[in-house]
Amino acid sequence: MEKRRFKVGLFIPCYIDQFYPQVGIATFELLKKLGSDIGYPLNQTCCGQPLANSGSEHEALGVYAAFVKNFRSFDYVVSPSGSCVYHVKKHYDILVGSGLVPDEDVNKVRNNIFELCEFITKILGVDDTCAYFPHKVGIHQSCHGLRGLGLGRESELAGSGEGVGVVERLLSKVRGAEIIELSRKDECCGFGGTFSVFEPAISVSMGRSRVSDHIANGAEYITATDVSCLMHMEGIIRRESLDVKVVHIAEILNSSLNE
């Protein structure tokens, strides 16, 4: 595929970097396959969301500023995490006017950051990543991607609208993959960042319902745009030895016949 003219900065969130490097690698390889000119700033850390969602957005300002400095030279910033992307778009407003980094850099990064699937469909204009994944897959719609970034149509909203979300659009083109329907289409998995440790009982109960919904409807795999949701559900699946696996959407879209 021919090289695209713009430069794409790859943001690999902290927990993916540390615990799920394979998701970062799949994202990197996939974007390369699709012809993007990718850069990965080596000094990146985190978007600051764990702090801000706990009420300490003030302590996160330094993290925000470091993020903007790392990514301001790129035309686009892409990340395999809807939640982090949403956080940068929605909550970096407090960085504007703070004097820590120029406002135009903040705004440039906020306006040009994309979740991976959205970037592939909307900016690269690709629907088919020529992937092969012969399994029954359930899509867990991560809340921040769904309701925050509008990656799909929320079940709460009535009437017409863009019917098929970006994840479904890409996944439906994957050879061999069969998308299963869930009883509760887009209920939260209960991860919620630090919510998962401050309200462990409720969080796990939500996760368990989510996993059961997938199992009851015959999923072999649960996929999502966010590793955080998957990490939480995987924690429950492994503890209870349940018969379903988790896989990030980037890993599916990057899989090929030879694997």
Partner: peptide, 22 residues
């Protein structure tokens, strides 16, 4: 460890993405 009461922690890899990239 509130996370671990009813959940497993992820299995940590030897190498982070950043290390892999480098």
């Amino acid at each position: 460890n509130a996370w671990g009461l009813e959940r497993e922690l992820p299995v940590p890899p030897k190498e982070s993405f950043n290390e892999w990239f480098r």
